[in-house]
Computed example of a mutant assay.
Amino acid sequence: MTVVTDGAVLRDALGLLKDREEVAERLLEASVKHSFDPDTELDWDAPPAPDKWFWPPELVSLYDTPLWRRMPEEQRMDLARHEAASLASLGIWFEIILMQLLVRHIYDMPVTSAHVQYALTEIGDETRHSKMFARLIRTSGTPTYAVTRLHHNMARVMKTISTTPGSFASTLLGEEILDWMQRLTFPDERVQPLVRGVTRIHVVEEARHVRYAREELRRQMVTAPAWQRRLVGVTSGQSAQVFALSFVNPKVYTDVGLDRAEAVAQVRASGHRREVMQTGAKRLTDFLDDVGVLRGAGRRMWRSSGLLA
Rank of each mutant, 00 (worst) to 15 (best):
T112F: 14
D259I: 01
F36Y: 15
I106M: 11
D78L: 15
A297S: 10
D259Q: 07
G7Y: 09
A80G: 11
W227I: 13
E29V: 10
Q117E: 10
V60E: 02
R196Q: 10
S162D: 05
V222H: 01
G141T: 03
V9I: 10
L14T: 08
A309V: 14
S35P: 01
M132V: 01
R11A: 14
R20I: 09
S35N: 05
Q241T: 10
T235N: 03
Y212I: 02
T164E: 13
E205M: 05
A30L: 15
R219S: 07
F243Y: 15
Q182I: 05
A244K: 03
D125M: 00
H151R: 10
R26F: 00
T2H: 14
R303Q: 13
R218T: 09
K18L: 13
T235Y: 06
R200Y: 14
V191N: 02
R70I: 04
A46F: 01
H34E: 14
Q241L: 10
G296W: 08
Q278A: 15
S61L: 00
R208F: 02
W93I: 12
D6H: 13
A207N: 06
A155D: 03
V157D: 01
F133I: 03
S113R: 07
A8E: 12
L245V: 12
A88T: 04
V198A: 01
V210M: 11
I201K: 01
W53K: 00
H272A: 08
L194C: 03
Q117P: 02
E41H: 13
F54E: 03
M77C: 08
R283Q: 11
D290M: 09
S140K: 01
L288T: 05
L294Y: 02
H34D: 15
R219Y: 04
H129F: 05
L150G: 08
R190L: 09
T171G: 12
P250H: 02
R183W: 06
V264A: 12
R260T: 14
M277N: 09
G257N: 06
V222C: 02
R20A: 11
R11D: 14
P193L: 04
E189C: 08
E216Y: 08
G141S: 05
L178K: 08
S239C: 11
